[in-house]
């Protein structure tokens, strides 16, 4: 299992580190915080990697990445549960992609842990920024009548 949670850019990485400790028992020494503009070249992988937002990304540029080892530590919680837990704890919002292969939308998680389906702005995507917008739900299949 892997995780990649895009937190709102104003989110402070230090608050996420504290929340990981409180909610999932992850020690601060097991988390690496790096800058998007100056990523580390290599080394042993941390349990959790937090990449701070680039200066030109005011949207959802603070990214938390983790893998199987973190999943084992948190009892196998899925990405949505982890994201909602951290959003509630820190009081921020986050974006994660939808689970299904044929669903092109994303899920926006609010500070209260609730989430809604959103679409991303295509113009912003061109520069790698995630800017959520409303989803116009596709029509449901017609009834037999």
């Amino acid at each position: 299992m892997d995780y990649e949670i895009h937190f709102a850019s104003p989110t402070r990485p230090g608050e996420l580190v504290a929340a990981l400790a409180d909610e999932f028992g992850v020690a601060a020494t097991e988390v690496v915080v790096e800058s998007a503009s100056l990523p580390r070249a290599g080394g042993a992988p941390p349990l959790v990697l937090i990449t701070g937002p680039a200066a030109d990304d005011p949207h959802f540029g603070c990214v938390l990445s983790a893998g199987d080892e973190f999943a084992q530590r948190n009892g196998g919680r899925d990405e949505l549960t982890v994201a909602a837990t951290l959003c509630r704890k820190v009081g921020t919002s986050a974006l994660i992609p939808h689970e299904e292969a044929v669903n092109p939308y994303w899920r926006l998680i609010d500070a209260d842990g609730t989430s809604t389906l959103v679409d991303l702005d295509e113009t912003a995507l061109e520069s790698g920024r995630l800017v959520p917008g409303p989803v116009h739900p596709p029509p449901t299949p017609a009834d037999p009548a």
């Binding site: 290599g42 080394g43 042993a44």
Partner: peptide, 14 residues
Amino acid sequence: AEAERRADFEPGIT
């Protein structure tokens, strides 16, 4: 070579 060093650092990439 450089790419692999970075990928090794990323949790979740096997």
